[in-house]
Simulated scan of single mutants.
Amino acid sequence: MTRRVFTPARAGIHVFLFGAALFFLLPLYVMLTTSFKGMDEIRAGSILALPVAWTFEPWRQAWSEVCTGAACEGVRAGFWNSVAITVPGTVLPILVGAVNGYALSFWRPRGANLLFGVLLAGAFIPVQVMIYPLVRLLAGAGIFGSLPAIVLVHLIFGMPVMTLLFRNYYASLPQELFHAARIDGGGFWRIFIHVMLPLSLPIAVVAAIMQITGVWNDYILGLVFAGRDNLPMTVQLNNVINTTTGTRLYNVNMAATILTALVPLAIYFFSGRWFVRGIAAGAVKG
């Protein structure tokens, strides 16, 4: 068994990693401790001090009482709006991206490379450039400011990256699998459903993590396209934080911020190793 030798280089790596972890975890620590303090303790104490009297009242207010505009019902409604947007806004782009990547990798229709280049270029177009044309298009279709509108927008903006991920992943699979399925009489959809989809779990997890966090953390698209009745949690959080009337409740603001970020944090915490496996299994191969 090889014994690891402690060297200055290894010590430097550990110091750097510790400093990086501290840099990213310190704001989260401050947010957590502040969210469990009363306002009197926040005004009188140190920002890094642990709460003297722990209280869950700020969390209750953030969830069900804080004003997010004209209504004072907390960020609870925004949470369920975000769930209603994120679920179809994740499933549909992944399915469309998987079909596109499968077609571009194995069937290669005429102009496939050109189509892939156009899709790839779409991933680098700034969102702000497309907002006004999409507003006019969705308004003309009569769905602007609705749940289908915001889901469709996330499908449009998510499809290029999803196609890129699945196309590169399928390109790394042995071509013999496809040829054997074709010899057995498999068609486009039969091969996709029975051969490709069962092999797609690693990259599907990567795609789901990327799409869920992107849709959940989105602000500008939800503000423009979701409509007043479907505002996501991020938009309601902005209304909470930027409220200028009365006393600014830092503990409630911190609790609302953590509640908003809880889903992406949980996904990365529990699915981090799946993300690494998916990347290693071919997500960056081409």
Results as ranks from 00 to 15, higher is better:
V91S: 04
L92N: 05
L92K: 03
L92T: 02
L92Y: 14
P93L: 06
P93K: 00
P93Y: 04
P93C: 12
P93S: 14
P93R: 04
I94V: 14
I94C: 11
I94Q: 03
I94R: 05
L95Y: 07
L95N: 03
V96T: 10
V96R: 06
V96W: 09
V96C: 12
V96Q: 09
V96G: 12
V96S: 10
V96N: 06
G97R: 03
G97N: 05
G97W: 01
G97K: 06
G97D: 04
A98I: 02
A98F: 01
A98L: 09
A98M: 12
A98E: 07
V99L: 15
V99E: 08
V99I: 11
V99N: 05
V99M: 15
V99W: 09
N100K: 11
N100D: 14
N100T: 11
N100L: 08
N100A: 15
G101N: 05
G101D: 04
Y102H: 08
Y102G: 00
Y102A: 06
Y102T: 04
Y102N: 01
Y102M: 09
Y102P: 04
Y102C: 03
A103K: 01
A103N: 13
L104V: 04
L104T: 09
L104M: 15
L104S: 02
L104H: 01
L104I: 13
S105I: 03
S105C: 11
S105V: 02
S105H: 05
S105L: 06
S105Y: 02
F106M: 02
F106K: 01
F106G: 00
F106Q: 00
F106C: 01
W107H: 10
W107N: 01
W107S: 03
W107R: 14
W107K: 02
W107C: 00
W107D: 00
W107Q: 04
W107P: 00
W107Y: 13
R108N: 10
R108Y: 04
R108W: 02
R108L: 14
R108C: 12
P109A: 05
R110K: 11
R110V: 13
R110L: 14
R110F: 12
R110H: 06
G111T: 13
G111K: 07
G111V: 07
A112E: 13
A112N: 14
N113T: 13
N113P: 02
N113M: 09
N113G: 15
L114F: 15
L114D: 02
L114M: 11
L114H: 10
L114E: 07
L114C: 11
L115M: 13
L115H: 06
L115K: 03
L115A: 15
F116A: 08
F116I: 06
G117W: 08
G117S: 13
G117K: 08
V118P: 00
V118H: 01
L119D: 01
L119Y: 13
L119N: 07
L119I: 03
L119E: 06
L120F: 10
L120N: 12
L120A: 14
L120Y: 09
L120H: 05
A121W: 04
A121I: 07
A121T: 10
G122K: 07
G122S: 05
G122C: 07
G122I: 06
A123P: 06
A123Y: 10
A123C: 07
A123N: 14
F124P: 00
F124L: 10
F124R: 08
F124D: 07
F124T: 12
